[in-house]
């Protein structure tokens, strides 16, 4: 707490405390209620979700909206259309693409970040700024050539096209996160390993990286979430269930007029669970990384 503790001479109404709790509760509701609404709706029957006034709590909770993705009942089959049947595939695609992006990112970023944290070299400052600049490039500016390039190589509608593009999106930030993190790893560890005549790769693999593991996890989570949430590139680069990711399929729900809101809500919840779980699990690390990646530079 930043204020000095004052000894109360007489009883005072703790306005500050009251204001604090009122604000905290108001913000809490603002943050959670919209999400609560689609979660609640995803467990409702269509008729309940459409009722006026709305049911704020599912009256007869049901799993049919979720089960419909795997095993659509006749009604869902009739109106659900493509988006429903594509949802399980898109979840698999997103999982593969995001995991591969995380791994590829980690390898590339570890090399680069190590150089910034351990070596003094000419041009390091310029290079760091250049990395940062590529993060500022709007995706829309590169999507057209990227699309043409992928078309030329026959990579449209493949995982590889997505993995490559997401790697370049996440790379600058993961380098920045790891660079800061690697600096906090004591140099003595590597020096001790060197005295033991370990080669550079062995030193990295068995001494440095295990110590740096928490930072690596944070960077991997960051890259995973970047890939999982991305929409515009996936919209351009994919066209069938072979590579469509969950944001693309979720957007199909929105443009399809037949869509049941309850099914759409269920798809939305499925799409948000992986990044949300990761964000909550790695809350501290991610917050540090985000803060370091922007406030410090």
């Amino acid at each position: 707490m930043s204020t000095v503790v004052q000894v109360p001479l007489r009883y005072r109404i703790p306005w500050k405390k009251i204001a604090l709790y009122v604000l905290a509760i108001a913000f809490g509701l603002y943050l959670v209620l919209p999400f609560y609404w689609i979660v609640a709706m995803s467990f409702m029957h269509e008729a309940d979700a459409l009722s006026v006034p709305p049911h704020w709590v599912p009256v007869n909770p049901t799993l049919e909206n979720y089960l419909g993705f795997v095993n659509p009942n006749s009604a869902q089959e009739l109106v659900g259309g493509r988006a429903v049947s594509e949802t399980p595939y898109s979840l698999r695609n997103s999982l593969v693409v995001a995991s591969a992006t995380a791994v590829l990112n980690l390898v590339l970023a570890t090399f680069a970040a190590y150089s910034f944290s351990r070596l003094k070299f000419k041009g390091s400052q310029v290079l760091l700024v250049l990395y940062l600049l590529t993060r500022m490039v709007p995706g829309i500016a590169i999507i057209i050539p990227f699309y043409l390039l992928m078309r030329q190589f026959g990579l449209l509608d493949t995982y590889l096209a997505l993995i490559l593009s997401y790697t370049t999106f996440a790379l600058p930030i993961t380098i920045w996160i790891l660079k800061d993190f690697f600096r906090s790893v004591p140099r003595e560890l590597e020096e001790a390993a060197r005295v033991d005549r370990c080669g550079w790769f062995r030193t990295m693999w068995s001494v440095f990286l295990p110590v740096a593991a928490p930072g690596l996890v944070a960077a991997a989570v960051f890259a995973f979430m970047t890939a999982w949430n991305e929409f515009m590139f996936a919209l351009f680069l994919t066209s069938t269930k072979a590579a469509k990711t969950i944001p693309v399929v979720a957007a199909n729900f929105a443009t399809d007029f037949n869509t049941q809101f309850t099914v759409m809500a269920a798809a939305g919840v499925l799409a948000v669970v992986p990044p949300l779980v990761l964000a909550l699990l790695f809350q501290r690390k991610l917050v540090q990384g985000m803060a370091a990646g922007s406030v410090k530079g």
Binding site: F27, G28, L31, V32, P34, F35, W37, I38, M41, M225, W228, N229, F231, I246, P247, V248, A250, A251, F253, A254, F261, M264, A265, A267, G268, A271, V272, P275, L276, L278, A279, L280, Q283, L286, V287
Partner: peptide, 19 residues
Amino acid sequence: LALLPWAMPGVVNGLMWRT
């Protein structure tokens, strides 16, 4: 709770507010 909207893909955010 403050991290919740951050974890939400923009597309899902759009769907959510649509409903």
